[in-house]
Design a protein around this nucleic acid. Structure first.
Lengths: 124, 124
DNA sequence: TAGATTCTTCTACAAACGTAGAAAGAGGTG
DNA sequence: CACCTCTTTCTACGTTTGTAGAAGAATCTA
């Protein structure tokens, strides 16, 4: 499941709350999005084609629902990135993220998060 | 600088050692890559168009050289991902990577890496 | 130097993306 | 019922990506 940047936009609006109509989705998009209504419809149709979204009729209006979950989409996006940009090697990716992407504040937060995870892992 | 999956392949081969000719690049690609030589040439030409690679003639043969560094490309790929899939929020991304993508062994490694970073940050 | 080999340059073409207008159909309203 | 408004469906068109063949130019080699 590969989502393009625009598709992410749509999906995010849909995950926010669903089922949703194209109109609702269009209203939830960020202010600065200038897509025509039919553009949104086209993208929804394509997402339906990709089986990322389901479509169902209520009266003459289509209601959409995500078929993939946000977590899964994120997971797979991260995996794809690691795959193509880091040769599939998780560690270099981590090292990279840890060292280059993070401010020391973020690094601290990450440590905390990991600690929490560690702790709760022990409890289980 | 947005690189496609195939472009990453080429770039990786080029980063490995450069300047390099199309032929050399083609020889360095993973065994299972089945691209025709002209396919590689086309991609190189497009990468030149994108200013990701420079081209220079030696006799009648083009010699290529990366114009962007691997680190930068990776950094920007990570940034793009965070941007589109995580709404630009670094922390959720981190939390996600830390919790969902990592095995506990990897998590431990990450902690170590962060420690090292922390230590060397102090020295500076 | 003629032929083989290798490169380059041009051209092509299908699928995916980004973006959207035109026209037709349904539903609500005075 | 006539009409306005919203929705759908169809069609379209330019760009990017993936993939590569044809033909010509340069080089090497016997």
């Amino acid at each position: 499941m590969r989502l393009t940047k625009s598709e992410w936009q749509i999906m995010k609006a849909l995950w926010e709350s669903h089922p949703a109509t194209a109109r609702e989705i269009s209203e939830r998009l960020p202010e600065d999005t200038t897509w025509a209504y039919t553009t949104i419809k086209t993208m929804l149709t394509r997402l339906v084609g990709k089986k990322a979204v389901s479509e169902r009729k209520r009266a003459n209006t289509s209601v959409y629902e995500p078929l993939i979950e946000r977590d899964d989409a994120q997971r797979s996006a991260v995996a794809t990135l690691i795959e193509s940009a880091f040769d599939g090697a998780v560690e270099p990716f981590l090292g990279f993220v840890a060292n280059s992407t993070l401010s020391s504040k973020e690094r601290k937060r990450l440590l905390e998060m990991l600690d929490r995870e560690d702790a709760s892992a022990k409890e289980r």
